[in-house]
C-alpha cells in the first residue's frame, strides 16, 4: 500500500537520506529506530512532503509522487492519504480539542459541521478525553494534548498515520497514556509508521522494525530478529545500548 522508492534528501550539501526504499502493507505497524540525527524524522516528513525529497518517489494508496516532477495538487492529494502526529503536538491553539479533531473533516472532506462534531466526539471518547471536548490546548496536559494530536490524525481519514517521536517531548508520567492509545490503534490494525526511542513499544507492538543509521536502512525485520538476533554489527551495537536504558 505504501511504496517508497530510492528516496533521497539533501540539505544543501548534506545528504540526510540516501536512496531509501521500502514498502508497508495495509494494517502493518512499522517502527523505525536508530540513533539521533540519522534521518528518521526527515524520512517521515518526506512521506507527506512536509519536507520535499530531492529525488525518488513516494506512493501511498492510489497516489504516487515523484520528487523530480510534481505539482501542488498531487502533493495535497498525497497528504490526504496520510496523517501525522508531531513530537510537540502542534495543536491548533485557537481551537478546542473537539474543533482540532473536526477541522480536517470540515475543511478538507467537506463534512457538515454537526456530523464532523459527532465523529470528532466519538474519536475523543476513544482516546479517553470525553471530559475535555471543549478545552483549549493550553488547558490540557502534555499527554492529553498528544492524545488530541492522535485523535486529529485518526479523524483525517488517511490510509496511514505517521508518528514522529510522539512521546519524546512528554514528561515521563504522560508517556504511558499516549502509548496505550497507540497500542489500541495497533490492535485495530491501523497502518502506522512510528519513529520512536521507546524500544519496549517497538518490541511489543511492531510487525516490523527498521533500523536506520547515517541515512540508510541498515537492517529490517521482525522485532525478534532485530532485538534478539541482529545481523549487522551496527544494529547489534545500537540495540545493546538501547535495551540497557
Amino acid at each position: 500500500m505504501i511504496k517508497v522508492t530510492n528516496l533521497s534528501k539533501s540539505f544543501d550539501d548534506l545528504a540526510v537520506l540516501k536512496e531509501i526504499s521500502f514498502e508497508v502493507n495495509k494494517g502493518e505497524i512499522v517502527v523505525i529506530i536508530g540513533p539521533s540525527g540519522t534521518g528518521k524524522s526527515t524520512l517521515l516528513r518526506c512521506l507527506n512532503y512536509l519536507e520535499a525529497p530531492t529525488s525518488g518517489s513516494v506512493e501511498i494508496g492510489e497516489i504516487c509522487v515523484d520528487a523530480k516532477k510534481h505539482n501542488n495538487k498531487q502533493i495535497t492529494q498525497l497528504r490526504k492519504q496520510s496523517s501525522f502526529v508531531f513530537q510537540n503536538y502542534s495543536l491548533f491553539a485557537n481551537k478546542t480539542a473537539i474543533e482540532n479533531v473536526a477541522e480536517s473533516l470540515i475543511t478538507v472532506w467537506k463534512t457538515t459541521r454537526n456530523e464532523a462534531q459527532e465523529t470528532a466526539k466519538n474519536i475523543l471518547i476513544k482516546v479517553g478525553l470525553e471530559d475535555k471536548l471543549n478545552f483549549y490546548p493550553s488547558q490540557l496536559s502534555g499527554g492529553q494534548q498528544q492524545r488530541v494530536g492522535i485523535a486529529r490524525a485518526m479523524a483525517a481519514k488517511g490510509e496511514v498515520i505517521l508518528f514522529d517521536e510522539p512521546t519524546s517531548a512528554l514528561d515521563p508520567e504522560w508517556v504511558e497514556e499516549v502509548l496505550a492509545v497507540m497500542k489500541q490503534l495497533a490492535l485495530e490494525k491501523q497502518t502506522m509508521i512510528v519513529v520512536t526511542h521507546e524500544m519496549q513499544f517497538a518490541k511489543e507492538v511492531a510487525d516490523r522494525v527498521i533500523f536506520m543509521e547515517g541515512g540508510y536502512i541498515v537492517e529490517q525485520g521482525t522485532p525478534e530478529q532485530i532485538f534478539e538476533h541482529p545481523q549487522h554489527k551496527r544494529t547489534q551495537a545500537f540495540v545493546k545500548r538501547a535495551l540497557k536504558r
Binding site: 507527506n48 512536509l50 496523517s83 491548533f92
Partner: peptide
Amino acid sequence: SQMEACLSIGM
C-alpha cells in the same frame, strides 16, 4: 508547526 499540522491533514 501549526501550518505543518494543517498541511499534514490535507489542508
